[in-house]
């Protein structure tokens, strides 16, 4: 790992318009991503955690240029890719790829496994004929499948096997950077570990860099070098893995970690549980000031008025919280 950022995202926003009435009048915006900045260094895995609807997928799709950003900049390998042409975007896809959450919906049911994995090779004119076939088989082997799987269809495969096919397809163009959007969430527990190990092996062997999106804090802790915590379209805390899990500062991060049930009855009752009250507000009208204030046990008058800015509190550990800033939480 180097300190050189492969990806740098600054003040990225995505507002989805909400239309209503017979004329489809624009009445509001879903502020899915509301000013997010982070960077991913070459060779590292940045974990992006947040509850459902917090904007994780939207960030991943904007980074890959699968979705236009409302504002903000995205730099990849030092180059601003915010406004590149369609041709340049296609070029970029050889460098960055995505693995989706749903191993059922993301593979075309009418294509064979061989066709699915070799499609990017054809699109990018990387290899043809016999070479393409050989490369396809090599890719299947790389993810633990066999050449005998080439002519079979996705419905003949289990979820874990389909996810392997999705990984093989993403790897076909030899990308440097992969957005993994909840790659194991749809898989059975006994299969999740297989796919996580595979992703780790591939990172090491191929020198990959990941943006790893998940709502599962145990999975993220396992696979990430650094972790960013997202809530309603904002990053609340970002830190090295050990700092985030052993010394979380933001009240939301603390509550999230405390809410994870531990699979060991012997440990029950040993952890202090901060039960958050209230529901997750909608991204259409996020609360004023700190958007966590209606649920925050530390909230004070300033929190409903001023939005806290991200501040670095220790090397590589940034938090957006007034109570951390004034020393109430340390």
């Amino acid at each position: 790992m180097t300190d050189e950022p492969l990806l740098e995202v600054a003040d990225l926003k995505k507002y989805f318009p909400v239309n209503a009435g017979v004329f489809g009048r624009h009445v509001a915006d879903v502020k899915a991503v509301d000013g997010v900045s982070f960077s991913v260094r070459k060779g590292e895995t940045l974990g992006l955690v947040g509850e459902s609807g917090s904007g994780k997928t939207t960030i991943g799709r904007m980074v890959l240029k699968l979705l236009p950003a409302t504002s903000g900049t995205i730099r990849f390998e030092g180059r601003d890719i915010s406004d590149i042409s369609a041709r340049q975007t296609r070029e970029l896809r050889r460098r960055m790829q995505i693995i989706f959450q749903d191993p059922y919906g993301s593979l075309n049911p009418r294509m064979t496994i061989g066709e699915i994995v070799s499609e990017p090779l054809a699109i990018h004119g990387i290899a043809r004929g016999k070479a393409r076939m050989e490369r396809t088989v090599e890719l299947l082997r790389l993810v633990g499948l066999q050449s005998s799987h080439l002519n079979r269809y996705p419905n003949e495969f289990s979820g874990g096997q389909r996810q392997r096919v999705g990984i093989a397809r993403a790897l076909a163009v030899e990308p440097q950077f992969i957005v993994c959007d909840e790659p194991v969430s749809a898989l059975d527990v006994s299969i999740q570990a297989q796919v996580l190990n595979l992703l780790e092996d591939l990172r090491e062997r191929l020198g990959l860099t990941y943006l790893f999106i998940s709502h599962d804090l145990s999975v993220v802790r396992h696979i990430s070098t650094r972790v960013a915590v997202l809530y309603l379209g904002k990053i609340f805390e970002i830190a090295e893995r050990s700092a985030l899990y052993e010394h979380p500062l933001h009240p939301y991060t603390q509550a999230l970690l405390a809410a994870i049930p531990v699979p060991d009855p012997a440990l029950q009752g040993t952890q202090k549980r901060v039960l958050l009250s209230g529901d997750v507000p909608t991204a259409i009208a996020p609360p004023s000031g700190c958007r966590f204030h209606p649920r925050c046990p530390f909230a004070f008058d300033r929190c409903s008025v001023d939005e806290p800015a991200m501040r670095e509190v220790a090397v590589g550990h940034s938090v957006a919280c007034h109570a951390v800033e004034n020393g109430t939480i340390r």
Binding site: V189, A193, Q194, E200, I223, P263
Partner: peptide
């Protein structure tokens, strides 16, 4: 046993390699 051993756990060393159950359901 395999199911419990395959879980990434918050109380395990973060770098410990996961031990999956081989094969498919």
């Amino acid at each position: 046993q395999g199911l419990l051993a395959s879980l990434p756990r918050l109380d395990a060393p973060a770098n410990a390699r996961l031990k999956p159950i081989p094969g498919q359901p």
